[in-house]
């Protein structure tokens, strides 16, 4: 079963790594903004909290499904790597899951439990969102450190935990800027401005640490001629950050600017570029420095049967996801069932 001249045990794992990468990227952006909204909730007044949560109400569940798909692809396409990575990250995964449970149920309990419990569930929503973001950042850091657990690597992981959490809060605030108006939008502009440092430092830390930890990654980035065609990546990231910064300042002066979605799209692009950079660094490894995706892949006959389904189903998923965002476009109001 050759494809473009590559044998099946070459191109299938590559395609699945691409699909997994795509799912992770979509997850980080989509759940990134709704986790970010959760992280920011304590900073708002109660009726603003309702609007913030309403703005993500129809989407959060589908957003989290991308995580299930990503972990599902890791599980089904690279089962050995799945076991190695998840046992190495046992505790942060458990904390993330508890966080996801807490925020997921808080959506419902907040509006259905007796009124005097509402503040409690808002707090649970915040705590769960923050736990999830922190543990994801921690896992990211440990992954960059080749899943080794020492004082130094854990220290780095704590840093990435904070940076990713702040990064999520920026994209969350950028979402609220697009989705709301008035006093809440003004606050969200200030929250974004307050968090940009985390985005800058986070991208810088990941970019600097990966080549320093691994001579292989260093070689990939800084040997001639690769750095010539890789230069646009950091340059573009820098330009986008500058754009976010100036856009936010302009919005702070003139809230009625037509480009309220600018910071959101630019932050999305920054997440995507950082992700592409990481993917380039770690390829062909799925467990850093230990196992390549070709070694970890499932049997081609199992992968092909998943791929056939994916070709039909993925466009449908993207299509009805787009339908949902289109249906719930515009400024968020309160969430109602009728």
């Amino acid at each position: 079963m050759e494809f473009l001249g590559y044998p099946a045990d070459q191109w299938l794992p590559f395609v699945f790594a691409g699909l997994m990468g795509l799912s992770i990227l979509i997850y980080v952006i989509l759940d990134g903004f709704d986790l970010g909204v959760g992280i920011l909730v304590p900073l708002a007044e109660e009726d603003e909290q309702d609007r913030m949560i309403a703005s993500i109400g129809p989407f959060w569940d589908a957003n989290e499904t991308w995580l299930v798909l990503a972990i599902g692809i890791l599980l089904v396409a690279f089962p050995t790597a799945h076991g190695m990575i998840l046992t190495a990250l046992y505790l942060p995964v458990a904390i993330m899951l508890l966080g996801l449970i807490m925020r997921g149920v808080a959506f419902e309990f907040r509006v259905k439990a007796p009124l005097h419990w509402k503040r409690f569930w808002t707090w649970v929503f915040f705590a769960g969102s923050t736990m999830t973001a922190l543990s994801q950042g921690y896992m990211l850091g440990l992954y960059i450190m080749s899943l080794d657990s020492t004082w130094a690597t854990n220290g780095f992981a704590f840093l990435t935990a904070v940076f990713l959490t702040v990064g999520y809060s920026v994209i969350g605030a950028a979402w609220i800027i697009g989705k709301t108006e008035g006093a809440l939008q003004r606050k969200a502009i200030a929250w974004s401005q307050g968090g940009v440092w985390g985005l800058v430092l986070g991208v810088a830390a990941i970019s600097a640490a990966s080549p320093l930890v691994s001579p292989r990654i260093f070689e990939k980035w800084f040997s001639y001629p690769s750095y010539t065609y890789l230069t646009p990546l950091p340059v573009l990231s820098g330009v986008l950050m500058l754009f976010v910064w100036t856009r936010l300042r302009a919005l702070a002066k003139d809230q009625h600017s037509r480009y309220a979605w600018g910071p959101f799209y630019a932050t999305m692009a920054i997440f995507a570029l950082s992700f592409l950079g990481m993917a380039y660094s770690f390829y062909p490894y799925v467990v850093p420095e230990k196992m390549t995706l070709y070694e970890a892949a499932s049997a081609p006959e199992s992968l092909i049967i998943i791929l056939v389904g994916t070709i039909f189903v993925l466009p449908a998923i993207l299509g009805y996801t787009a339908l949902s965002y289109y249906l719930f476009r515009g400024k968020a109001t309160e969430l109602r069932y009728d």
């Binding site: 129809p58 989290e64 299930v68 798909l69 599980l75 389904g309 009805y320 339908l323 949902s324 249906l327």
Partner: peptide, 21 residues
């Protein structure tokens, strides 16, 4: 693997997106 993958692709996304609607 393929059975779980088909569950995610044919069920989870369908439920999650249309539940919002």
């Amino acid at each position: 693997g393929p059975l779980l993958a088909y569950e995610i692709m044919t069920a989870f996304f369908l439920e999650a997106v249309f539940l919002g609607i």
